[in-house]
Amino acid sequence: MSVRKTILEVSDLNAWYGESHVLHGVDFEVREGEVVSLLGRNGAGKTTTLRSIMGLVGRRTGSIRFDDQELIDLKPDKVARRGIAYCPEERGIFASLTVEENLLLPPVVQKGGLPIPEIYELFPNLKERLLGASGTRLSGGEQQMLAIGRILRTGAKLLLLDEPTEGLAPVIVQQIGASVRRLQELGFTVLLVEQNFHFAARLADRHYVIEHGRVVDRYQRDDIKTRMGELNELLGV
């Protein structure tokens, strides 16, 4: 496999919510076309890392380079316009919008987004639920599919997915897993935050473990089997 270009490089990232200093120098990188996971216990700072990339925290310092450009001083809308799409932990489906309005909400920021029929192919349930239903009457799984589906048409190359399997039934988790793999085949780069380690282990090319707002360890896909013991310890599984 040829060495792929680094598309996202985060270094010495610090972030604050008001007075509380949450990230203390996070370092990691993501290469083009990779699926990379951020693992860690509750409150480790995974969500904050994604939010910092999007510019959704009060204050941040350090460096976030995407596509060879610095993002650290950009507001969230400008970050999105550079081609990064965010699927939040709480999914963020809008209850006052119909399913279709939710799907069409994020504006196209670049060429090369997935056409709607391909999004339906990826998530057939969405198409069935399209007729008129408002956003929150969907099941948890359907909401998650909508939350991922709607960021695929924008042309963003890098997808930030925060715990896409949280609270979902095993069969839905499998379906989401298959979709993420398919997204990788389609050329998307995915930065995945997960509590469900087994889910992440099957999907990701590489893993970073975050603890107390720092990256404390990293694993290649193939390291996982041999280093399972330490990893379980780190994650407190």
Partner: peptide, 8 residues
């Protein structure tokens, strides 16, 4: 916040 993170 989320609407803004979509690029609006």
């Amino acid at each position: 916040e989320l609407v803004r993170a979509f690029g609006i």
